[in-house]
Design a protein around this nucleic acid. Structure first.
Length: 428
RNA sequence: GCCCCGAUAGUGUAGCGGCCUAUCAUACAGGCCUGUCGAGCCUGUGACGUGGGUUCAAAUCCCGCUCGGGGCGCCA
């Protein structure tokens, strides 16, 4: 059985163990040396002595971040600060790290974010960065668990598509044998087709691509989108799914990861569904009373979003957006044709989810192609699904990296992306 | 697409026309040291993005380029 650093407490004093990891640090005193060994659960001190190690000279020259396997006796009454150490009698060098490192894991000097991303493999050795992705993994597990227990089917739709259909966002063009293709900006149209297929409740976790030349701390050109679509549902129903899945996933994550999460966000434990709701028109009214000059139909600037966010603790919905600010498939409000049955979920001042009840009537959809100036020929594969039995339906899409960024109070969405793709970065 | 800012050892910085043969820290290499734990002490290696220009003199001032950061716009 593999032993990890965080298992050591459960073992007995003087027990014989083998443990693997990276050499985080060495402190050398001629015939005695200390190695701080790190695995992804923590660090432990290894004591190596010349008279107990046959390859002491080789070990003495170990470089930081080399990978070793240590066998020895667990000493739980160590005089070291942690109180635990391993008295090594055998150390095997599995991988020797070159020097100097492109960046240090525990150096006291700061490192530019750009340098960190260029050396992401080392950057992620830092426990605080690794933690972000453990958090993401647990959060996503919690969301999946919620969806699964509510009878959602997880699906996978194509990311390579034929036409730049939906207007609006720019798409990346790729060669597809003798044809042109595009990287999909969202699974939207495919989720809806599956609703006509009778899947009833679908969800998908997958990449989405946007070719917009943004240069901000909240945009990526490739991000992970969590999408759901539900048949015979309206906007309110899927808002309920959203807030409950968030509350469930956060609760799960806190339970699994413990108080570490509060180092990033001390109020995370207070997230409870339902989330507060404000309509688009109420938001406009509020912002006009707080120094902004906004008309009906205007979108909110980042500055305005900060002011609005000040009204709420963390999550809140902005509902009933104007028709002009929403895509062609958004269902208009039956009480006011200028508004839609749509919503954004905000977390602090950032939009993390956009959703709505969708139009399921084929004629209405065709009319919207005209109004939005879209070429209906590009939508044949989609429209077809509406002609032969399409239930009313609603759904949403959520940016996973943005969710994690905001839950952990990170200042840049690239922090919650393993290998970010942005305006200028395509590597690693 | 627009605006602002930046580029000096592996890493992070100081410098802002001549005191630069370029500062400091950290890392790295070598040495001393059998209980270190931000180890300590000694020695050493290592850098001005690129192409022009101004000047007696450029890391420093000007222009182009390249690369990067941030804000806005755009954005399911």
């Amino acid at each position: 059985m593999r032993i990890y650093v965080n298992n050591l407490n459960e073992l007995n004093d003087n027990e014989r163990i083998t443990i693997n990891g990276w050499v985080q640090e060495t402190r050398k005193i001629k015939n005695l040396m200390f190695i701080i060994l790190r695995d992804n659960t923590g660090i432990v001190q290894v004591t190596a002595k010349k008279n107990t190690l046959s390859n002491y000279n080789e070990i003495y020259d170990l470089t930081r971040e080399s990978v070793i396997s240590v066998s020895g006796i667990l000493n739980k009454k160590s005089v070291s600060k942690s109180g635990v150490e391993i008295n090594a009698d055998k150390i095997e060098i599995l991988s020797y790290a070159e020097t100097p490192l492109p960046m240090g894991v525990i150096d006291k000097v700061s490192v530019d974010f750009d340098t960190r991303l260029n050396n992401r493999f080392i950057d992620l050795r830092k426990p605080e960065n690794f933690f972000i992705f453990k958090f993401e993994s647990e959060l996503l597990f919690g969301i999946r668990e919620y969806m699964n227990s509510n009878n959602f089917i997880e699906v996978h739709t194509p990311k390579t598509v034929a036409a730049a259909t939906e207007g609006g966002a720019d798409l990346f063009k790729v060669k597809y044998f003798e044809k042109d293709a595009y990287l999909n900006q969202s699974p939207q149209l495919y989720k809806e087709i599956l609703i006509s297929s009778g899947f009833d409740k679908v969800f998908e976790v997958g990449p989405a691509f946007r070719a917009e030349k943004e240069n901000t701390v909240r945009h990526l050109n490739e991000f992970t989108s969590i999408d759901i679509e539900v048949a015979f549902a309206d906007d309110n129903y899927v808002m309920g799914i959203l807030e409950n899945s968030m509350a469930h996933a956060i609760k799960h994550t806190i339970k699994k990861l413990g108080s570490d999460v509060f180092k990033y966000n001390s109020s995370l434990g207070e997230v409870k569904a339902p989330f507060p709701r404000i309509t688009y028109e109420e938001s406009i009214y509020y912002l006009n009373n707080n120094g902004f000059k906004l008309n009906f139909g205007d979108d909110f600037s980042p500055e305005a979003m900060k002011i609005l966010a000040g009204k709420f603790d963390n999550f809140y919905f902005i509902t009933k957006w104007p028709v002009d600010l929403r895509p062609f498939y958004t269902m208009p409000d039956e009480n006011n044709p200028e508004l839609t049955k749509s919503f954004d979920l905000q977390l602090n001042d950032i939009e993390i989810t956009s959703g709505a009840q969708r139009i399921h009537n084929y004629k209405m959809l065709e009319q919207n192609f005209l109004i939005k100036g879209l070429n209906k020929n590009n939508f044949e594969f989609y429209e077809k699904a509406f002609k032969y039995g399409m239930p009313p339906h609603a759904g949403w899409g959520l940016g996973l990296e943005r969710l994690v960024m905001n839950l952990l109070h990170l200042s840049n969405v690239r922090e919650s992306t393993l290998f970010p793709r942005d305006r200028t970065r395509l590597s690693p």
